[in-house]
Design a protein around this nucleic acid. Sequence first.
DNA 1: AATGAATGAGTTTTCATTCAT
DNA 2: CATGAATGAAAACTCATTCAT
Lengths: 179, 179, 179, 179
Amino acid sequence: MTEKQRKILDIALELFAQDGYNSTSTNKIAQEAGVSEGLIFKHFGSKEGLLDYLVEEGVALMNEELDNLMRIENSVDRLKATLRFPKAVIDKNPAYWKVQMSIKFANHEIVEKYHNSSFMGKAMGIISETFEELNFENPQMETQLLMQIIASFFMSLINDEMENYAEMVSFLEKKYNLI
Amino acid sequence: MTEKQRKILDIALELFAQDGYNSTSTNKIAQEAGVSEGLIFKHFGSKEGLLDYLVEEGVALMNEELDNLMRIENSVDRLKATLRFPKAVIDKNPAYWKVQMSIKFANHEIVEKYHNSSFMGKAMGIISETFEELNFENPQMETQLLMQIIASFFMSLINDEMENYAEMVSFLEKKYNLI
Amino acid sequence: MTEKQRKILDIALELFAQDGYNSTSTNKIAQEAGVSEGLIFKHFGSKEGLLDYLVEEGVALMNEELDNLMRIENSVDRLKATLRFPKAVIDKNPAYWKVQMSIKFANHEIVEKYHNSSFMGKAMGIISETFEELNFENPQMETQLLMQIIASFFMSLINDEMENYAEMVSFLEKKYNLI
Amino acid sequence: MTEKQRKILDIALELFAQDGYNSTSTNKIAQEAGVSEGLIFKHFGSKEGLLDYLVEEGVALMNEELDNLMRIENSVDRLKATLRFPKAVIDKNPAYWKVQMSIKFANHEIVEKYHNSSFMGKAMGIISETFEELNFENPQMETQLLMQIIASFFMSLINDEMENYAEMVSFLEKKYNLI
DNA sequence: AATGAATGAGTTTTCATTCAT
DNA sequence: CATGAATGAAAACTCATTCAT
């Protein structure tokens, strides 16, 4: 990966997050990256190819995070970490996840790309196992509900709409009898 | 409101929901509505003006639904109805809410329009009041959490990703001690 | 057909003939026609749509000419007119036939458009009938040969490579015993 | 001439014949030849330089064929060979002649390159001499006509439009009293 | 109220060509 | 000799919007 190639990716990520995928022209990306417009197409084939590259990077990153979560052996600690997961991930790279989510809804065809990617299933597996280990009465429904809650937290965090995240985590820890 | 005006709105809604706001051209709207392209601009000023009109209609519709919810006197029944609210609303007019959500994320300038609309606050008021009437320990946090859950349900339903909605409602009713 | 629409067609025809289809940009057509580039696409859908329109006009024109030829009752006169046909047609509208022939070879997909059009078969029918009426020994082969010769004359005339066309006609008239 | 140089020429010829000169990008040539795009320009200066090289090779090949024709001492045999000339030449190297003809009409600047090449004059010389030796009444016109016919045969053969070439040759041999 | 011809700025993409290594 | 990263000009096409009728 050349310096310019990396620059294109970084600027594209930033602009997609800022203005959305559709509202960002390849011309603008090239200009801000200090690069000829043609280079984007030489390296990524098309504007969508550029997006795909970004998405794949994001999915890989997310999978790494999930792997870390999976490595926590104690179930209670793992569930606690799960509740903190959205904020932990986003704080590491806010720009990345702003794009991921915004494009998910901006472009109908891309929704599926994300949904078919491995990490939804992997996340479900981890949470489900945790609830089973903790002998919750209805682990399947608990899993589904928590997935929804966590997805929702992702959204809110991305839009800077959750100032009291820590408080919410405590509240849920009580609900799940983790303290 | 003339017949053609109504037709434009209906077709625009349908196409925005189907293909997203950005990917729907005024030309296509005009063609499918059997109307000249100029007429759209005569009536709604701009493409965004057309969207605004649709958004306002959506907000009004949502407020109506919330008013119905608010009218339920018994707190337990009201909370039960609140849990069923997303599916009840969407089933009445699926296209409407698909647009609402898809444009919310597709077009950054429009996000605020939606967010500044009254109904989020109204919904929060209803739920908060309910939890207080039912003497929940921490009504504020309960409210915030349920808002997240319900928002998440909206998303999932719109993307046809919740087949077991009824089961989930029962599950939550138990959690909230409503049965 | 508006004035500007006609102007686009005329200029396009001229430029296609002058520089070839591929080397003529829609931008140049628009500029020389004193028209916005978008208008070309509004009216003809695409650059190829514009070409198609021109081709169809040409085919129609050619069919008319063939109909005139067909109307000649005396076989000898008809064969004489057939020999003069290429020059007669081209002299009526040299620009038209320069395009027709140049695009035929410039663009592989278009070759078929032309070949599938009616006039090749129609021409063959006329010539074949003539040779039969004149009791030529092998009318089929005579027809095929004359078709080749006439096609070749078209090419040469288009490239301004036949100054002695009249002499050639006399020469052939002798060969076919028409004088 | 290095191996890669030769490969570029062969692939270019093939692609020009298949898709036409304008529709073949240097990028595609480089890729299919397994060579860097830069190398094409190192060796041939420009895309047109590459074409020129091919054209010159073609002209040389054609001249060789004409020399062979010229070497036939018996006039009758020479005229017979002349009638068979188009098919004989094309069968030896169909791709070559497909390019020759397609670019001739696709790209106006190149038409002249071909036309100024010697072989048209040489062919004319051979045919003219033959008709004189055979004491045809009007050798000049006979020559011009046969040139047209042969040119036309070239075109038809290139487009795979003459299945009964052998029959046509016999037919002409009779016409020219060669059997 | 309604049309539809017309615009012009913008979009993604292609492509021959250059140049440092 | 050979590469491949990089360029920049041009290509076809789209689209929201205006305006005379």
